[in-house]
C-alpha cells in the first residue's frame, strides 16, 4: 500500500504507479469494475475566485470522480486552498467571490435556492491545522456536527460517534477517554478526531486542506493510510504541496501553477500515475521534475 513518508528512495512516477496498480486490484475486488466509470461527484466549470480586484485562481474546469482521491497539487500561493473553500461555500464569509459553476451531483452549489448549510453537511472539510473544539470532550467533538444539524437521541449519537471514530482509526485510542477534553490528544490524534467529526455527519465529499502539514511523519503515514481507506465510501479532494503524498494516495491529480500575471490556474489534470509518468504540459513536466515551485 502507501509507502513510508520518511524514506522516499523511489522516483515519483514509480510511487504513483504502485499506487495505481494496488488500487486497480482493490477496486476489481470490491466493485468488480474500474471506479472511473462512475459519474463525477463534483464538477467545476470555469471556476474563478477573486478577492476584490485580486484574482486568486481562475479558469478551473475539473471533474472530481466519486469515491476516489483527487489531489490538488502545486506550489504555495497558487490558489489551492482558495479553490477548495469555494467547493463548500466557505467564501460566503471571507469576502471571496466565486464565478463559474460548481455542482455537487446535479445540484448547483451556488444556486439561488441552495442552502449553504445543506451543502456543507454533504461536503465536509478537514483543515490544515487540527482544530477540535477546545471546550468540548472527545465525544462532544465527534457529535458536534450532528447536534448542529438537529440530530438528537443519545443512542443514535453514541452509535454515530463510535462508527465515525472507527472510520477515523481512532476508536481504540480514545474509547476509554471519550469524556476527556479533546485538546489532550496529540496533534495526529486531534487531526483524526477532526476527520471523525467531519465523517459523523455522513458527507459524500470530504475536502482536506494539507491535513498532514502540521504533523510528524508517523502521524502523516496514519492519515495517508486513512485517506486511502476512506475513499471506499467518500469522495476525497486532497490539497497537498507534497508530490510524493499525492503520488502515494491519489487516483487523480490536478496541477495548479501561477500564471505570468501571478494568478493561479489549473495547468493539467488526469490520472496520477500518468500525470507523473508522462505529463503532457511542459509546465507540468518542469514542476513534476522539481524545476519550478
Amino acid at each position: 500500500m502507501s509507502g513510508d513518508p520518511i524514506a522516499r528512495p523511489e522516483p515519483l512516477s514509480l510511487v504513483a504507479e504502485q499506487r495505481a496498480a494496488a488500487n486497480t486490484a482493490a477496486s476489481a475486488l470490491t466493485h468488480g469494475h474500474p471506479s472511473s466509470a462512475t459519474p463525477p461527484a463534483v464538477t467545476l466549470e470555469g471556476v474563478q475566485v477573486s478577492f476584490g480586484d485580486h484574482v486568486a485562481v481562475r479558469n478551473v474546469t475539473l471533474a472530481i470522480p466519486a469515491r476516489q482521491v483527487t489531489a490538488l497539487i502545486g506550489p504555495s500561493g497558487c490558489g489551492k486552498t482558495t479553490l477548495l473553500r469555494a467547493i463548500n461555500r466557505l467564501h460566503d464569509h471571507t469576502g471571496g467571490s466565486v464565478e463559474g459553476s460548481i455542482k455537487l451531483g446535479d445540484i448547483d452549489v451556488y444556486g439561488a435556492d441552495t442552502r449553504p448549510e445543506l451543502i456543507r453537511r454533504r461536503i465536509g472539510m478537514v483543515f490544515q491545522r487540527p482544530n477540535p473544539f477546545p471546550a468540548m470532550s472527545v465525544f462532544e467533538n465527534v457529535v458536534s456536527g450532528l447536534r448542529f444539524n438537529g440530530v438528537r437521541g443519545r443512542a443514535l449519537l453514541r452509535d454515530a460517534a463510535e462508527s465515525a471514530l472507527h472510520h477515523a482509526a481512532l476508536w481504540d485510542t480514545v474509547k476509554d477517554r471519550l469524556n476527556q477534553p479533546a485538546v489532550g490528544l496529540s496533534g495526529g490524534q486531534q487531526q483524526r478526531l477532526c476527520i471523525a467529526r467531519a465523517l459523523a455527519v455522513e458527507p459524500e465529499v470530504l475536502l482536506m486542506d494539507e491535513p498532514c502539514s502540521a504533523l510528524d511523519p508517523i502521524a502523516t503515514a496514519k492519515i495517508e493510510n486513512l485517506i486511502t481507506r476512506l475513499a471506499a465510501d467518500v469522495t476525497i479532494v486532497l490539497v497537498t504541496h507534497n508530490m510524493f503524498q499525492a503520488a502515494r494516495v491519489s487516483d487523480q491529480a490536478a496541477v495548479f501553477l501561477l500564471g505570468e500575471d501571478r494568478v493561479g490556474e489549473l495547468v493539467e489534470a488526469g490520472a496520477t500515475d500518468e500525470l507523473f509518468h508522462e505529463p503532457k504540459n511542459p509546465r507540468t513536466r518542469d514542476y513534476v521534475a522539481g524545476r519550478v515551485g
Partner: peptide, 9 residues
C-alpha cells in the same frame, strides 16, 4: 469555520 463547515448555522 470548523463549525460552519459542519453545516451549522
Amino acid at each position: 469555520e470548523a463549525g460552519i463547515a459542519l453545516g451549522a448555522r
